[in-house]
Each structure stands twice: as C-alpha cells, then as structure tokens.
Design a protein around this nucleic acid. Structure first.
Lengths: 214, 214, 214, 214
DNA sequence: AATGAATGAGATTTCATTCAT
DNA sequence: AATGAATGAAATCTCATTCAT
C-alpha cells in the first residue's frame, strides 16, 4: 500500500514537472508558439509521456492557469487576513489583484486567455467568493455601505476590475500616446472610484483624487 | 477610368462577400473551428482567392470585428445624440452597450476575442472617445459630478463595463446556479452603481435598486 | 525440488492462460487490432507480465498457431490411422484438412497468417511429413500410382491444397457472385482431381464429378 | 477544359510517382519497416502530400500491388496469345506465373501480402478469367480433357498454383535441407502434374519427370 | 485574378516494448 | 515475478499559408 502511495506521489510530482516545463515555455514563447515537443524536451520526457498526463495542449494550459489561480487565491487570502475592516479587506484584495497583474504578468495573461471559455460552475477558489465574504464583513462592521448587495457587488467587482486591468494592459501604450496619461494613474483612479462606491462614509459630492490611502 | 472604378467596385463587393461568408461561419462554429476552406466554400471561391483579399485568417476575423464595431459605434452615436444631458448620454451609451451585448451576441464575442490582442493605437471609432465626450458634456451641464476626470473615467468605464459584461456572459449559468441570481439583475445593478458613480446629485447613503430609469 | 517443479507447473499454467487470452482476442479482433493491453486485461495480468512469458506479440501469435497446428496434426494422425490403404490415408488427410478449415476457421486464419513468414526448418509436425508417409504406403500397397515421387508429391499436395483452400476462403463470395458456383463444390471438385492425380487405377479419360467417395 | 485535363494528367502522374517511390522502399525494406516519411522523402514530397493522394500506408501498398497485378496480367495475356492450343495456352500461363514469381519476386511478395484480405468482387484482371478462357478453348480444340469444368478448374488452378509457389517460396531452404530436393524441381514436377490433369491424351500410368516440355 | 495542389508544421493517437521498483 | 509508467516511433490528421499555372 505504501507502494501505491509512493507511486501516486511520483505521478503527482511528474505531472507537476510537466506543468512547470509547459509554463516555462508558454511564458517564454506564448501558447500558440509552443509545441508539445518543446515541452517534452524541457521536461526531459517523451512526447508520449506528456499525453499520458494531459489530454491536450489546451489542458496543459489549463494546468498552468490553475497555478496562477492558486497564487492569486493565496494573495487574496493573505490580503483578506491582513486587513481589519471589511472595507479594508476588500481594498486589500483589489490591491493584491493589481500586484498580481504587475508582478505575475505571465500568469495574468494566461488567466485572461483562459477566461474566454465558458464556465460551468463557480469553483471553490473563485475570487468572487472571497469578495463576498469581505463585503459581508464590511457591511456588518459598518465600513461598507449598508445598502449594497454583497453578492451582486462582488460579482460586479470581479468582473469590472478584471475588465479595467485587462483594458489597461492591452491599451496601455495606446492610451499613453493618445491621452498622455500614465497607465498606473488609471489604476489608481479606479481604486478611488471603487472605494467611493463601497465606503460607508464618503460624502457624495466631495473628495478629489488621491486624497486618501489607495 | 470608368473601368478602373468598376474594377475597384467589384473588388470591394467581393471582399465584402468574403467577410459575410466568414462571419457566417465564425458565428456558427467559432474562430478556431472555422477553416479557410469553409469560408471559401460558402463564398463560392477557392481557398487561394481568399488570400488575395486577406493576408490571414486573423485579418479576416478583424474584418468581421470591424463590422461589429461599426454597428456598436452606430448604436453609441445614436444613443449619444438621442439623450439630453451628459449623464443621460453616458447612461444611454451604457444601455446601448448592454443592448448590443444582448442582441448581437456573436459580434460581441468576436469583439471580445479581438480585444485580447494588444492594441497599437486608439482608433477613431474607439468607444472610449465618445464616452469622453459625453462625460465632458455632463460636467459642463452639471449632470455629472464635477470632480471626475472625464478621460480617466471614460477609460475606466469602457474597461469595467466590458469586464462586467464578459464576466456575466461567461459565468451566467454558473452564477445563477451558485447564487440564484438572474444574470440580468447583475447588469441592472451595475447600471445603478455606474449612475451613482457619475451623477452629480446622488445622496451619499441613499437609493435602492431600480428607483429610477436605468 | 518439489518447489521448483511446482513453480514450473505454475509457470506453464500461467503461460497457457496467456495464450488462451491472446487466442480469444486474436480470434475476435484479428492480430493487428489486438493490443497487448487487451490480452493482459483478459488474462488479468499486467502488460509487463506478458513480456515475462513471451518476447513479442508475434511470438504470442506463434503460440496460438501452435495450438492450431496441434489440433490439425491430431486430426491428420487420426485420419492417417483410420484409413486402410495409402490412398485412403492421403484422401482422409485431405478431408481432415477441409474439415479443419471449416470447423476451426479461426485457427486456419491464424495458420495462414503464420505461413506467410519464411520457414527455417521443416518441423517434426509439418503436415508434409505425414503426407509423405501416406503416399509411400500407398505406393507400396498399390493404391497410389507407382510413378509418383512421394516427397515431391507431398510437398505439392500441401502447398496446392492450402492454396485452394485459402483462395476459396478469400474469394468465396466473389466466386459465387461471379460464377454462380457454390464454394463447397469447388472443394469437392478439388478432391476429385487429387484423387485422379494419385490413384493407381483411374482410367485416363473417364469419370465425372462425384462418381465415387470424396 | 484543356486545363482540367492537364491538371488531371499531372495528378495522375504525381500519384504514379508516389507509387513508384513507395514501391522502391517497400521492396527495399519491407512494408512494415517503411515509413510514410521515407516514401515522402524519396518522392521529394511532403508527408501531407502523400496523404493527399492516399488514405493510408495500406492503400499505398494496394497501389503497388496493382502494378504487380498489371505486370502479371500482361504476362498472362502475352502467354495466352503466344500459344496455339488451349492446353498450350494454359501451360504458357502457368509458365508465365512461374517466371513472374522468379523474376518479379518483390511484386510476388507484395501480392501475397495482399492476398490476405477478403475479396469483394472478381476484378476484370483476375487471373482466373484468362484461365477459364484458355481451358474453354482447350476443350473445344480437343487439347484439354473433355470432362473438366473450365470454371471450376480455373479456380482450382489459380488457387493451387499460388499455393504451390508460395509454399515453395517460404520453405525452399527448409525443403532443400530436409529432403535434398532442389526447389525448381518441385515446380517442374508440379507443371507435369498439371499437364497430366488437363491434357486430353496422357496415358494413365505413363510418363516420368521431364520427358516433355514444361 | 482565380484556382487548387502542395507544403510544412504540429497535434494527436496508438502501441509494442522496455525499465525501474 | 509482477507491475504499470515511460518510451519512442510512426501513423494519421488538420490547416493555414504558399505557389505554380
């Protein structure tokens, strides 16, 4: 029985090795330009073995994405735990996302590529879930506006933040050229707007940009 | 001369035929599953001829997207013209986008696919431009909050709205299953939030869903 | 010692199990379409284990063929023993072959497949040997023509009979369709010709079909 | 229209080139050891192009066999035309087969390999047909025994001759080793037997080996 | 311009066979 | 001995793209 377990561990390990190899090349050359042969060679395995662990290149990509999701999820949980009020938690999660987007650009791109596919079920790591928690806490502790619907808002937040980041990512240069605006400013501006949207105590007509922590 | 013109007209017409054929199949089977052969056969041309008019499958897709962009752009202008205040214009544009997403789902998908690629330059039909105009007008006529930066906000609006819609699109079923929320409610909720974000006169703690026109 | 013997017995038994499994599937799906995996699974063993007992798929096939050869050989010996004169023995062997072909079609096919390969040495069960014996006896007892060379004739008989049967097998339907002849008639006709070729006393121009025992 | 014809001619020509290349390698290395890549490289085409003309390696093999069949068929017709009586024609066809087997060993092997498959329909080049003609003529002109059934006999002759030749081919060395008989003697002996079986005037007990033309 | 054959590159599949445990 | 993962070699398939006519 120990044997079976060891076998399984080895299998898991090898599977992981393959994902690491795939990741390396996907990130270096892009999904389209990567061949299974490339991956096999980096993993020091035969092409056949790759197909022993994965059904298709697409599935391999999915595994890489999963790693990104785990990293992101970890960052979200850390952010969640490290902040006090619900609003702080929410903002921290947003900030974590921005950091992920900046520091893990490859994973972010992989994730975006994946985001095309239809989704069957909300996975238990879905970022929307942690956002819901944060918002609920915020409503309870009074840091977040009382009138928001935490579930709907979480769904919105995830969608719109991804949209802003993606848009920013793809058009950064074009935006800078056309409007002479630094891309980071956009993100900063976005964070402010989100805060205004969520915070319990923001006076309706008030406050310019950057007046507070972002 | 007349000959040359006729030639050109014929060429344009044929090019358009090809785009229409491509569109038909892209929409029916998706970009990946469409072959140039498919398109050629629907266009009643040979594979080679397609390449006389387009450099690549990707470019053909781009032409289809362009048609979608034109439709969208038309809807945006109509929305813009048909509303009075800047805020109304902005909201009308948002509503038009939602309508486009619902009524032209195929174009919307094509557009999303396209949006994936990096962008070199802000095209003169870029939706962000019309949003900037609407916001500027809104600031001037007082319907929109004075403290917003119209350019940054337009950029944000475009990005986040696309994100919300895309997220909604991909996960609609999953969201309904997990949270028992109708997908349209999310869109409605989003529109409210946007209004709150932009309107000059929304009382800070007030207003439930659907209290006004969306 | 007893242990070693038991071991050997177990080994033989398992080897046989494998052959039986292989046979089952070869017969059901044909050699080419059978995988070692198939065989292993029917034998309730792992792929690797098969290779402990056999060097190759081809060798496994050989073992199946060997079973067929043993059956055929048994039938031949029975036929040989059960007939009186050399001519009768020869004819009985022929009849046994026809019966084998009809009743053991799978083995027959396997055998044919095997017969394709070059042969190094005349095995001690080679059907030609028993035919030589029968012919020699026939020459001695006067039932077979005196002028035939028993060895050459035995070689011919084996070759041509196999050829006739194989041809009949492969083209039976086609022949029936093209010439409206029942395949069994061909075999019958063949037996007559052989008899004429071998029998000591057949008048040169005489005898139609079916005039005697076949 | 001339264009279409030329196209077709070119296609045929290329198809033929591929068959020639395949033939070259099949004959040199055997079917199993030949890769499509090999063939493509000899034909100076890409692997993909091979599949444009042939569905599978097996089909390519069939095309090579077809060439062999045509050669054989040609030899048969020549033999048929070159002999006077029906018996001579039949014998000449047999002799042609032997020559084919000796001089076109590669084709002969290819043909044998092919002979495994079931046959749907008697093709118009099937050797049995010409044998039927020869026998019929022989019966009419009195050179062949009156009591034979030309169709059945032709079927037999084809089957048994192929069997003899194949057996001789595969076991030649083994036979020589075991019985000290030259393989050609077997063939010669076979021809005599066939002659005796068919000829109208052979005295029942007469004639040793090699007494006449074979 | 139009055609459609050819290319070439890579994904996928399939297995017999080998090998480490 | 037994296992089953790994290998490696090919077959097959699929297409976007190119090219000769």
């Amino acid at each position: 029985m120990g044997t079976a377990e060891r076998r399984q561990r080895e299998k898991d390990w090898r599977r992981n090795e393959i994902v690491l190899a795939a990741e390396k090349i996907f990130f270096a050359k892009g999904f389209e330009n990567t061949t299974i042969e490339d991956i096999a060679s980096v993993a020091e395995l035969s092409k056949g073995t790759i197909y022993l662990y994965f059904d298709s290149k697409e599935q391999l990509h999915g595994a890489v994405v999963m790693r990104g999701v785990e990293i992101l999820s970890g960052m979200f949980h850390e952010a969640f735990e490290g902040a006090d009020t619900g609003l702080e938690k929410t903002k921290a999660i947003g900030a974590a996302y921005m950091r992920f987007f900046r520091e893990q650009e490859d994973y972010f791109d992989a994730l975006l590529r994946y985001e095309f596919h239809e989704v069957e079920k909300i996975g238990k790591h879905d970022p929307m879930l942690i956002l819901i928690d944060a918002l609920k806490i915020g409503i309870e502790d009074g840091s977040v506006r009382q009138d928001i619907d935490p579930v709907k808002m979480a769904i919105l937040l995830w969608g719109q933040t991804t949209g802003v980041v993606q848009n920013n990512h793809r058009k950064c240069k074009a935006i800078t050229d056309a409007f002479d605006i630094d891309c980071d400013e956009i993100i900063e501006y976005y964070m402010e707007q989100v805060k205004r949207m969520l915070a319990a105590d923001v006076p309706s007509g008030g406050g310019g940009a950057g007046s507070e922590d972002v």
